[in-house]
Write a protein that binds this DNA or RNA. Structure first.
Lengths: 147, 147
DNA sequence: TCTTAGATTAAAATCATTTCAATTCTAAAA
DNA sequence: TTTTAGAATTGAAATGATTTTAATCTAAGA
């Protein structure tokens, strides 16, 4: 967090209250918010803020590598991840939640490691796992028991 | 291909010329076309066809499991894969091409296999590899040699 | 204080996709 | 073959996320 502020200052980027608030929000909301999520959350404290500012700040943070835009979308909307660390995502098909997967296992995929992909140079991997999360699984089991 | 036609007939789905043409196109264009790609390609032969028909047919084929919509988008547009077979995708950051990866290696990821994902039930995995494809790699090397 | 570049804003524009109502087509029954 | 009901297609309009625009504001340096 701090390093972002410092970094951006060094880069000569103006740190407006809006930008600070968006960075702060992203830091404390790791549940992959959309631009709208951010806008709505900050609406109260910054009533005059425009959604265009949210978009432009997200673009700025993305371009500087502080956040990642996921390849997948939440109800048609782009969503963002406050980290540059390489990790993967699990999507619950029941509750729509996106859960981070810290596992390195996908990166150890032999074909990728060996760079054997027919001469391709692989930089980044984003894996999306679709399924039912533990919370939703529990609920299903409960329901079945009650029957 | 044939089985789709047969299958759909059994299911009582009407096989209009437009639908046939779209299925045919998808079959012979495995480069992950978008709705627009399909529309433009069929424009000449079916001048009266509406883009709405393309979208609705894609939806129909998707719902019946004959095609897959990728999680990633091509220049902001949804793109489709004529297969129900589980595989992954490589995205060239230089030429925007999407290349199929037939490898099973990602699916053998130990954590996923063991279903140990904190109680999650993993159904499908879609991995997206970002990098530079062999073709673009070659071109870069050539350019460097010429310098 | 004045100037200026960059940031913010609200509104308009864009663009992919969906919806809608009217028309046309299809397939099965008569 | 003709009829007919239901489904599909069409073009246009609506939607919704995102981007662009032009005007206004802000903060830092001269």
């Amino acid at each position: 967090m701090k390093y972002i502020i410092k970094d951006l200052k060094i880069k000569g980027v103006t740190l407006t209250p809006q930008r600070m608030a968006i960075i702060e929000f992203l830091k404390s909301n790791l549940n992959h918010p959309t631009a709208e999520d951010i806008y709505k959350a900050l609406e109260e404290k910054y009533p005059s803020m425009s959604i265009a500012t949210v978009y432009s700040t997200l673009e700025l943070l993305k371009a500087n590598g502080y956040i990642q835009e996921l390849s997948i979308r939440k109800r048609g909307k782009a969503c963002f991840d406050f980290t540059s660390k390489n990790h993967h995502h699990f999507l619950c098909l029941k509750c729509d939640n996106i859960i981070d997967i810290e596992s390195e296992c996908i990166n150890t995929c032999p074909i990728v490691k060996a760079g054997q992909l027919e001469g391709c140079k692989v930089g980044e991997i984003q894996a999306y796992l679709y399924g039912v999360c533990s919370e939703c699984n529990k609920n299903t089991i409960k329901k079945n028991k009650n029957k």
